[in-house]
Design a protein around this nucleic acid. Structure first.
Lengths: 125, 125
DNA sequence: TCTCTGATTCGACGGTCGTCGAGACAGGCG
DNA sequence: CGCCTGTCTCGACGACCGTCGAATCAGAGA
């Protein structure tokens, strides 16, 4: 179960716990905002958004850095830096297998963020 | 209809056009990422996330700056700056009525962002 | 063991961000 | 009209961010 009492961390948002009712449903508490905002911030860069998409949509659910890097006009260290940002935001996991490192999306967090942004289909009855 | 050919802007994402298939469905093109990332970036600050929530969940669908400001330990200019950021990201609209200014959420963009983050309920068959 | 390749860390640079105080603008009211 | 209240703009400051090259680490293979 998630820890209680002390400060929340992004790691507690893995499952489908009802931590985050829709943003338009009621005020997001300051503590919750402090936990969620870094995830949106990590998504707030075009390069990271594309990286996230490439990882999440890769077949097998994972992508190798060696496949990610050549898709951008950026140096290896820069891509590595962006991947670290995504990892520290709790959006992806990394695993080394031999020479290569594979990144994998964390669907739980993505679901939480999507749920937070969910809006009723229409304002009608 | 949305303009075509030239560069896309956030204003073209108002309706429910299928501009944004889920992130995990396929690679987000660089152009799309450049348009969407600023919206996530705007949500990437705890103060703005709370402001967005307060506006979206306000009764009547709108919130007055005079009700927003006292909820934070920040000066008026700072709150105004954050509201401007949300406005320039296309997330809210502002309207002046007499002395007061009211902010209102734009559900279309919120829906697009939520759709982008949507993940299948499970990896099952 | 040595070397080679893939990935990360480190240090540095210019640019942007969040915050503030001071001042300007807008509208209501005496 | 003048004043007051609410909101925004402007300039400034320290902190953080995106990018790079150089150096370092981790494995694989000769």
């Amino acid at each position: 179960m998630p820890k209680q009492g002390t400060s929340l961390t992004i790691a507690d948002l893995n499952g489908d716990a009802p931590c985050c009712p829709p943003l338009a449903r009621g005020r997001v508490p300051a503590e919750t905002a402090a936990v969620l905002a870094p995830a949106f911030k990590a998504l707030g860069d075009p390069v990271r958004l594309r990286l996230m998409s490439m990882i999440a949509s890769a077949e097998g659910g994972e992508a190798c850095v060696c496949d990610l890097t050549p898709a951008f006009d950026l140096t290896g260290p820069t891509i590595s830096h962006h991947l670290r940002t995504l990892r520290e935001a709790g959006l992806v996991d990394a695993e080394r297998r031999g020479t290569w490192v594979y990144y994998r999306a964390r669907p739980g967090i993505l679901r939480q963020l999507a749920a937070l942004l969910t809006v009723e289909p229409a304002t009608g009855p």
